[in-house]
Simulated scan of single mutants.
Amino acid sequence: MRRWLLLLLPAALAGCQVTPTTLPVAEPAPAAECRWPAGSGDSLARAVTALEAEGFLVRHTDASLGLVSAERARNTIYHDNGVERLPRFGGFVLGGSGGHVSSGVMIGLGTGFGVGVDEATRVERVSVVVGEQQVQVSRDIRIIDWRGALRESRSASDADFCRDLRDAIEAVPPQEAP
Rank of each mutant, 00 (worst) to 15 (best):
R2C: 06
R3I: 12
L5Q: 13
L5P: 06
L7S: 15
L7M: 14
L8W: 07
L8P: 06
L8T: 05
L9T: 11
L9S: 08
L9A: 07
L9R: 08
P10Q: 11
A11T: 09
A11V: 13
L13A: 10
L13R: 02
G15V: 08
G15L: 08
C16A: 09
Q17V: 11
V18Q: 10
P20V: 08
L23S: 13
V25E: 14
V25K: 08
P28T: 01
P28C: 05
A29E: 10
A31F: 04
A31Q: 03
A32L: 01
W36Y: 13
P37I: 01
S40N: 13
D42E: 13
D42L: 08
S43I: 03
S43V: 04
S43T: 08
R46D: 11
A47L: 07
L51Y: 04
E54N: 04
G55Y: 02
V58C: 01
V58E: 01
V58A: 01
R59C: 04
R59P: 00
H60D: 09
D62T: 06
D62H: 05
A63K: 10
A63E: 06
S64C: 12
V68H: 00
S69I: 05
A70Q: 01
E71R: 11
E71T: 14
R72C: 08
R72D: 08
A73Y: 07
R74F: 09
I77E: 09
I77Y: 02
H79G: 13
H79W: 03
D80P: 02
N81E: 15
N81V: 15
G82M: 03
E84V: 00
L86V: 14
G91R: 06
F92G: 12
F92R: 14
F92Y: 13
V93P: 14
L94I: 07
G96Y: 08
S97I: 01
S97L: 01
G99F: 03
G99H: 13
V101F: 13
S102H: 04
S102P: 05
S103V: 09
G104C: 03
G104Q: 04
G104P: 03
V105Y: 10
V105H: 12
V105A: 08
I107T: 14
I107S: 15
I107R: 15
I107L: 14
G108R: 04
T111D: 15
G114D: 15
G116N: 15
V117I: 03
E119P: 00
A120H: 01
A120C: 11
R122T: 05
V123C: 00
V126C: 02
S127T: 01
S127L: 03
S127E: 00
S127Q: 06
V129L: 14
V129S: 13
V130G: 05
E132W: 03
E132Y: 04
V137M: 05
V137R: 00
V137S: 04
D140W: 01
I141T: 05
R142W: 12
R142S: 15
W146S: 11
A149W: 05
A149H: 10
S153R: 11
R154C: 11
D158N: 09
A159E: 13
A159V: 04
F161E: 14
D164C: 03
D164H: 10
L165K: 02
L165V: 03
L165E: 12
R166A: 07
R166P: 01
D167W: 07
E170Q: 13
V172R: 02
P174C: 07
P174G: 09
Q175Y: 02
Q175A: 14
E176Y: 04
P178K: 14
